Simulated assay, not measured.
Amino acid sequence: MANKTYWSEFLRGVTKDNPVFALLLGLCPALAVTTSMENGIGMAAASMFVLMCANLIISSLKNHIPPTIRVPIFILVIATFVSIIGMVMEAYSPALHSALGVFVPLIVVNCMIIGRAEAYASKNPVSFSAVDALGIGTGFLLVLATIGSIRELFGTGEIVLFGFQLIQIPIDSSSFMIMPPGAFFTIAILMALVNYRRDKMLERGG
């Protein structure tokens, strides 16, 4: 752990190991539920809760989990917290729960969460596993909120978050942006910009 700090681990999850733009994980919810900023934030928050809880439990029990059955145990732990967040959302935010639909229970098989359990939480202390979850979750939140806000703004001409209108612009909105092709178009443009910036930074570093 000598070369690790909590801050560096957090930043790594947001930037270098960003689940969508770097690791290319969690693309299904990134494309499917981001028809609005609110949906993107809701999905990312639910995923962050599950990721944080799963990382903490798996890291705490890593020395007691038999290697041969570690993946089924990881899935059982993740499924427990997915059930909890699903019931909480259905009770306190039924509209958001309905909008996210099947993608809430599908958090169980989200490669981002299973991957962090296998690659990080099962090999690192509880404190670093918590920071890893926070960094990865924050990176996922920023991406989904960005994609959702872009699609909602150009698809409807406004951004509404939990009943409050944040932005409204006088444009001819296009339903294309809130349809599946709009999701692919938006994420492709954002990935191109991220890769361009990364290449420029590597050139300056070289």
Rank of each mutant, 00 (worst) to 15 (best):
P66D: 13
M52R: 03
R116K: 10
G42C: 06
S60M: 05
Y120C: 00
S122Q: 08
I75N: 09
M48Q: 13
S36T: 09
V109S: 08
F103G: 00
C53Y: 01
I57V: 10
P66S: 04
P66N: 12
A133E: 00
A99W: 02
P125Q: 02
I57A: 03
M87K: 15
V88G: 03
S83C: 07
T80G: 12
I114H: 05
M112A: 05
A130C: 07
V33G: 12
G101T: 08
P125I: 00
I73Y: 10
L96G: 14
H97E: 11
G115E: 01
V102P: 09
L56E: 05
M37A: 13
N63Y: 08
S83Y: 14
L51Y: 09
I69L: 13
C53Q: 02
I58G: 02
A121T: 03
L100P: 15
S83Q: 13
V77I: 04
G86H: 10
V82E: 01
A45T: 10
N55R: 07
Y92P: 02
E118S: 10
F81I: 00
I41K: 13
V108C: 08
L96F: 02
G40M: 01
C53N: 04
P125G: 08
A95V: 13
P66T: 12
R70N: 04
A130N: 05
S60L: 02
H64L: 05
V33R: 05
